[in-house]
Nucleic acid binder design. Structure first.
Lengths: 192, 192
DNA sequence: GTCTATAAGCCGATAGAC
DNA sequence: GTCTATCGGCTTATAGAC
């Protein structure tokens, strides 16, 4: 018999690739870099991930799952009031940008650096954005406010700004600013 | 003497490079592509721009000048009231994202795709963002509102969101949303 | 480990104005 | 013919892929 495959190879490679992709951008990272860092051979990487495009897609897909889990957990603690759930969702996103080595949202970064949004990874990234936006719209729709479309559009704009501003110089307060503004908009919308 | 140099060579190359860089991202565009499109030889490009990094820096520097001119023109028509000048500034930025082939802010895109912000181009991009933010802060400071820092931070977040959201699917209304929200924040801040 | 494509950058070759 | 702006192939490194 031959050597048994290490069980966590795929995850280890994906971990390594994810770190590099996030820190340096997808295009700037070569397959050789990932191989060196993951301490695996080329054939092993290419057995698990048939191409770089596939590896990138898996990186984003896993990020989507991870984010989805975080948001689901935040939602569990938020009770059933739609406005509370909305705030909890924005809080969870705001928490995500607070890391000192935050370098932007992986999906937004991918869409900014790759022009073609119709490949596999691009569809995951745009899908994530559309899902996030739809989630906000659904929460707002359940809130019975006067102009739900306006409120949802505004919150979406702030969420976009949150992820972008936090990655820029002097963006350390973006999370607080976004949260306070969303809270105020929600409060005002429900008061009327 | 001998053959005269074509007068607009440098501008033509820079025009071509700018279009390609903006449409496909800086990293995805090769020097050969620029050479082919600009219908010039390699030596000519390398005589005008000693390296790709220099060419990218010139692309961003020219964009900064162009944007600066647009904003200065908008400011000329805005009168002297700081709140009107602030609104005019945001209107000018909102107009900029309305193009059907808008693919994001060139500076923000560059920072998203290149991790190292300490090279020549990166300093131009971060400088542009810091200048824009400072301009907003200065307008707000001149407005004599109760909490100028909060207002400026909020408007900056919305401006970041404007540029990001407009490049994403379904972002066609981002300009209107951002403008109406900024107008409302300014109005509320001055009412109190 | 090797192979092919392509990147950035360099230099000999070409050609057009005097 | 000569001088120089410009061209396009060449070199080396590195990419992705088998």
């Amino acid at each position: 018999m031959a050597r048994r495959p290490a069980p966590d190879t795929r995850e280890r490679i994906l971990d390594t690739a994810a770190l590099l992709f996030y820190d340096h951008g997808v295009q700037a990272v070569g397959m050789q870099q990932i191989i060196d860092r993951a301490k695996c051979g080329k054939s092993l990487l290419y057995r698990e991930f048939p191409s770089k495009a596939e590896l990138v897609a898996e990186y984003l897909e896993r990020a989507r799952r991870d984010f989805g889990r975080q948001y689901a957990e935040a939602d569990d603690h938020a009770g059933s009031d739609p406005s509370a759930r909305l705030i909890a969702f924005v809080e969870a996103m705001a928490e995500g940008v607070q890391s000192p080595d935050y370098r932007g949202c992986p999906f937004r970064n991918y869409l900014a650096e790759v022009a073609d949004h119709d490949d596999s990874a691009g569809r995951i990234a745009t899908g994530y954005l559309l899902d996030t936006r739809a989630r906000i719209e659904n929460f707002v729709a359940d809130m019975n406010v006067a102009a739900p479309d306006v409120l949802a559009e505004r919150i979406w704009l702030i969420v976009e700004g949150l992820h972008t501003a936090a990655a820029h110089p002097g963006g350390g307060r973006a999370a607080d600013v976004a949260l306070s503004l969303v809270r105020e908009l929600v409060r005002d919308a429900m008061r009327v």
